[in-house]
Write a protein that binds this DNA or RNA. Structure first.
Lengths: 159, 159
DNA sequence: CTAATTGCAAAGGGTTTGCGATCCC
DNA sequence: GGGATCGCAAACCCTTTGCAATTAG
């Protein structure tokens, strides 16, 4: 799952230009290190990398950048709606340039994430929390299971 | 939220007897430390405590128990379906004796969890993942927002 | 010149693990 | 007596933070 090549909700390739545009629109200064993070993300497209994976990949590509800078840059991007992040409990955050509404398939083995679009999931009504005084800001759906790669790996391990 | 007293989906008080029964049914040996954890949980009912909160509370109650034992016991209970656990990304796991189907209101300020029952949320269909080869095991819904206590606290802080 | 950003290393929160001691059939 | 369980401390993973140096407006 770490090396997925297709992305069902993201067939339009994410380009560096699109990401730069989003930063400009939000008046987020595009410094050298931040640009390195975006470039790395474009290369990791479709894999929903963790911050550490982005960091490692950026270093591999020859960028001189600190781990904290990667974490800070990714959070800045999320705050300005340049990227989104997601994770299930107990695992590292994963970042992604898909802004369009979608949902996540979370693999319980490798913790990877697959995007999936589903109109029926989009239409889910918010519960009535008036009696609880709970102010809803959003609703998240996580579909958990085992991704194809992990299924195949498990079959190979124990035939 | 840490000190909630009512629990909308859990009006039937969870008893130590019920928890013991679940352990017996699963052939999970009820050792002294594990019993201490269950007793503590009954006392913390409705608060969805974290493992560390259970540990601290158990010590407060005079139980001589190690932190690792609490973590191991809670995980053993979850594995045997004596308890459930939940959390949103980036926060500590929270444990709870409610086995009946329900959903979670997650407070973005205090990270607390409220249970909520909602038939419409129960009826959500699973997405079609056949093309992705993803084997779904379950679907989780998290409603995020601000709980009443945190809303009031924020109003008080900045009037 | 001042504010923002960076890299590094250290600290932090939450959880797991190694290991000798203990408990229980 | 032998396997499960325990308590403790250390390790672990992921992330944030303190701070001096650097960069940008």
């Amino acid at each position: 799952m770490t090396s997925r090549r297709t992305s069902p909700t993201n067939d339009a390739r994410l380009t560096l230009g699109e990401l730069r545009k989003r930063c400009e629109a939000q008046a987020l200064p595009l410094t050298g290190p931040r640009l390195a993070v975006l470039e790395t993300l474009v290369g990791l497209q479709g894999t929903h990398p963790t911050a550490d994976e982005v960091y490692a990949c950026a270093r591999d590509r020859g960028f001189h950048i600190g781990r904290a800078t990667v974490y800070r840059a990714l959070e800045a991007f999320v705050a300005r709606h340049v990227l989104t992040k997601a994770a299930h409990a107990g695992t590292a955050m994963r970042y992604d340039g898909t802004l369009a509404r979608h949902h996540h398939l979370v693999c319980l083995r490798c913790n990877g994430i697959l995007d999936v679009a589903d109109e029926r999931l989009d239409a889910i009504p918010l519960p009535d929390t008036s009696k609880l005084g709970f102010a809803i800001s959003d609703l998240q759906i996580q579909v958990r299971g085992i991704c194809r790669a992990c299924q195949e790996r498990e079959q190979a391990d124990q035939p």
